[in-house]
């Protein structure tokens, strides 16, 4: 989780990721930011994000992103 928060801070440092649960709904992260995030996640956690994973529920909060990463790690 620490590593994920670092990645998120780098993409947009002005957000409180520990509390924010509307990263997508409030357009805090736009589609370009999401793509940068996905690229970083794939490098850092050796996972593969598919277009089907690109839904708001997976990116609205740091916790949701972390859950998605864990799920993708399990799926290998």
């Amino acid at each position: 989780m620490e590593e994920l928060l670092e990645i998120l801070e780098e993409i947009n440092p002005d957000v409180d990721y520990e509390t924010c649960t509307t990263l997508i709904d409030d357009h805090i992260l736009d589609s370009f930011a999401i793509l940068s995030l996905v690229s970083e996640l794939e490098d850092a956690f050796d996972v593969q994000v598919s277009p089907g994973d690109m839904v708001a529920e997976n990116f609205n909060s740091a916790e949701a992103i972390w859950n998605m990463v864990k799920r993708l790690e399990e799926e290998g």
């Binding site: 357009h27 736009d30 589609s31 793509l35 996905v38 994000v49 598919s50 277009p51 690109m54």
Partner: peptide, 25 residues
């Protein structure tokens, strides 16, 4: 970019989900 998130939203969202993300990924 914001304009297209507010104008013909469902077309923009369709293009994002079925063209933009699949091509980007």
């Amino acid at each position: 970019s914001e304009f297209w998130r507010r104008w013909h939203v469902t077309l923009g969202a369709w293009l994002k989900d079925y063209i933009f993300y699949p091509v980007s990924l």
